[in-house]
Structure formats: C-alpha cells, structure tokens
Design a protein around this nucleic acid. Sequence first.
DNA 1: AAAGTATCCAACCGCCTGCGT
DNA 2: TACGCAGGCGGTTGGATACTT
Length: 215
Amino acid sequence: MGRQPCCDKIGLKRGPWTIEEDHKLMNFILNNGIQCWRLVPKLAGLMRCGKSCRLRWINYLRPDLKRGALSEAEEDMIIKLHSQLGNRWSKIAAHFPGRTDNEIKNHWNTRIKKKLKLLGLDPLTHKPIEQSEKLELPETLNFPQEQQNIQISTSSPSLDEMNESNLEMGSNELFQNSDTFSSDMYNPGLEDPFQNWIDSPIHWNLFDNLDDNFL
DNA sequence: AAAGTATCCAACCGCCTGCGT
DNA sequence: TACGCAGGCGGTTGGATACTT
C-alpha cells in the first residue's frame, strides 16, 4: 500500500477563498509550518483539499510575496529566460524572488505574448514571425519607428539567438550579463525571513501523533 | 446608463515524478 | 519490484473588472 490520498473531494469547498479561510490558513502555517499539505486543511479547520491550500499559500498568502505589477526590467528578464527555458514557469519564477510561477505565467499569456507579437516575434520560438503572418496584424496598430524596423527585419537576431551564449549560465551570471538587471536586484543580500522560518527547527513532532486522530 | 466585449488573474484540472509502503 | 499517493507543475477556465460602443 502507498500513502493515503490527499483528499476525497467529498464535501470540500471550492472557488474563491474567503478572508476567514485566508486567516485560518495563514495563522496555521505561521504557527506550525508545513509538513504535510494533506493535514493542513484538517488541522487548520478548513474544508479545502491540501492542494488548494498549497496553491493559496504559494500564490497569495506567502509573506515574502512581492505585490504589484511586473516592471519592464522584469518583463525583459522573463523574455530572456523564456527563450532559454521555454514554458518552465517554476524555473523562470525561481529567478524572481517574491514572484510566483502562476503570476509569471499569467503575465506571459496576457501581456508579453502580445508584446512579442507586436514586435514581430513568435512567442514560442522568439524568432521573427513570417512575413505572411505579420500582414494579419491590424492596420490600426501604430508601431513606433524602431518597432517597425524590428518587425520588418528578418535578419535581426532573435532574443533566442542573442541569448544562446547564456544557455548554460546560472542566474547570477545571467543577471551580471544583463543590461537591465544587476545581481543586487534579485539577490539583495538580505536575509529572507520566510526562508528563515521555513528552515527553522519547527516542532515537527507536533505532527507525530496526528495520524491516530485524523486518518 | 446599459449592453457588449476585452482583459486580467485566481483557482482548478490532470499529468508527471519521486518516494513511501 | 510494484503499487499508489503527495507534491509539483503547466495548461486551462471562468468570474470579476475595465473598457468600449
């Protein structure tokens, strides 16, 4: 026999989280930490499945989350990383402390994709789009001259090509080689309070006897 | 002001991998 | 070694909001 299932989904709440649910989850995790997501909703008094709690925590409640829109510099970096990593959003998000993979994925799908298309680049390959496809762009789009130049130039290097030399680089090297990023921006050298409490010797033995009560 | 349309993003779904039994 | 679950991940959806007509 393997492990027990995360949840049976019977009688579990779905949809948007309420403030009360957020408080329960936040308080529980801050007080007890995370050992087993399957146990979190039961212990926190939530009618949610563990996966839902995990998602809510990672994407919304984590204290180290950075709020607000992504900057131009962050967008540029996402494009660079995407040209190297593809749709590996969690890997891309790992380069942006405080940002989530979901947030970056959403931003890519809603904004950056369009931006690249307007620049005449295929969001998948980061290569110039074929001329025929460009003709399908609405005529009302008024490109600045420099963007028009990029659009019609099929010989200009794509972001992918420009970054080929960075393929095997680690994040720090990438930041150091970027015009718009410095390593200080995302490695500020400050202690990460969230990581501190995750790493802290939380009393995991609190969970030792839970199986008897809940399983 | 109302209706229609576009955009954003939180949350869910289902698959994959690693690991416990 | 096989089985089956937990956690992680990427794709997708649908409700809320903003914008346009």
